[in-house]
Amino acid sequence: MAYVPLNIDLTNKQIKVIGGGKIAERRVKALLDSDATIHVISPDLTGNLYQLYLDEKIIWYKKSFESKDLDNDELIISATNQEEVNDVIKKSAPIHSLINMVGDAQGGNVIFPGTLKRGKLQISVTSTGASPKLVSNILNDLDKQYPIDYAEYVDFLYECRIIIKSLDLEKAKKNQLLESILSDQYFDEDEQEKLTNWLKRQPKKRAREE
Results as ranks from 00 to 15, higher is better:
residue 3 Y to Q: 03
residue 37 T to D: 13
residue 102 V to I: 15
residue 209 E to R: 09
residue 67 S to Y: 10
residue 95 I to D: 12
residue 101 M to Q: 12
residue 69 D to T: 09
residue 43 P to A: 06
residue 30 A to N: 07
residue 50 Y to P: 05
residue 19 G to N: 09
residue 110 V to E: 11
residue 171 K to G: 05
residue 85 V to F: 08
residue 173 K to R: 07
residue 165 K to Y: 15
residue 150 Y to T: 12
residue 23 I to C: 03
residue 85 V to S: 11
residue 116 L to V: 12
residue 19 G to S: 08
residue 47 G to L: 05
residue 188 D to H: 00
residue 13 K to R: 10
residue 166 S to A: 06
residue 106 Q to R: 13
residue 186 Y to P: 06
residue 57 K to P: 11
residue 62 K to Q: 02
residue 163 I to G: 07
residue 76 I to G: 00
residue 199 L to N: 01
residue 115 T to N: 11
residue 141 D to M: 04
residue 134 L to Y: 15
residue 26 R to F: 06
residue 108 G to C: 08
residue 70 L to V: 05
residue 51 Q to W: 11
residue 158 Y to M: 01
residue 106 Q to G: 05
residue 76 I to F: 04
residue 50 Y to K: 06
residue 106 Q to Y: 14
residue 108 G to V: 15
residue 175 N to R: 11
residue 206 R to I: 15
residue 15 I to S: 07
residue 64 S to R: 10
residue 196 T to R: 00
residue 40 V to A: 08
residue 169 L to D: 03
residue 98 L to H: 13
residue 180 S to W: 15
residue 172 A to M: 07
residue 94 P to E: 14
residue 44 D to C: 06
residue 194 K to G: 00
residue 176 Q to Y: 09
residue 74 E to P: 13
residue 76 I to E: 00
residue 13 K to Y: 15
residue 30 A to R: 01
residue 107 G to M: 15
residue 167 L to G: 14
residue 118 R to G: 09
residue 33 D to I: 02
residue 44 D to K: 13
residue 69 D to G: 03
residue 99 I to W: 02
residue 144 K to R: 11
residue 15 I to E: 03
residue 46 T to N: 03
residue 138 I to F: 07
residue 27 R to T: 07
residue 54 L to R: 13
